[in-house]
Amino acid sequence: MKPAPFRYAAPRTLDEALAVLSQHGAEAKVLAGGQSLVPLLNLRLARPELVVDINRVAGLDAVRHEDGWVEIGALVRQWDAERDPLVRSQVPLLAQALGYVAHPQIRARGTLCGSVAHADPAAEIPLVLTTLGGEVVAARAGGSRTLPAEAFFLDLFTTALASDELVTAIRLPAGGFQGTAFCEFSPREGDFALVAVAVALRWDAGGRIQEARVGVSGVGPTARRVVEAEAALAGEEKSRSAAQRAGEAVAAAVHASGDVHASAEYRRHLARVLTERAVVQAMAIGGEGVDAQ
């Protein structure tokens, strides 16, 4: 038996779950998909006194489209979101990214909200949330608050979530971009990425880029948007040279640090190449393609 002993609560309603967290949050861990928490339990890197399993809580498993947002509940599995018609049509960048999240066996259990709450700096879902300007809905007994992604992710594995709060949903803006792409590099398929880049583009009838979102992970403690690259794309015609300038802007803006997996220089190189590649892919999606130059 791998995990250290803990006690187990399986509330049936959100109110019950929040009541448990308000009383025991500091010594508790929330269990949803378990694909990040259970390895930590098995390795005894986490030794919570109480595990609060929210899998039986009613009403957290929906994907909803309202007021211009796609809201994804705490129990929506990555496997389901990947196949969800609403996600695929309204937030294609998320659908593209989900294919890179570990392996089918992990996505069958893992949740999007769990990945967000865990805040691994190399994880795909926090990168998409940050790039698109998404939000995190955090509930506690007696109320809830909504935080923009950039205010939620504070540092490596560190978020603004308090110990008595539960992430009940993430919200992503619906639609708005004709072309999106997600590119990452990892040494083996399904591993955490060394560097990942998410791009979303909106262009006018003449093919001129009106708005660009460029996000990158693997070059800092959290995923981040790179406004310099977004500015480099805004107002430009879709072209490979514009994509190259975006890549250079990312390489100049990020402060990568080296570790056992990759040197700082290599991460910066990946950020540039993957940005260029993702921008080219995003330009091509939507039918008009990219001119050779």
């Binding site: 378990g34 694909q35 259970v38 399993d53 899998n55 496997w79 992990i106 069958a108």
Partner: peptide, 12 residues
């Protein structure tokens, strides 16, 4: 669905 049975508690 395929699941890693080392990452799922039996109670679940």
């Amino acid at each position: 669905r395929p699941v890693r049975s080392c990452l799922m508690l039996a109670v679940q």
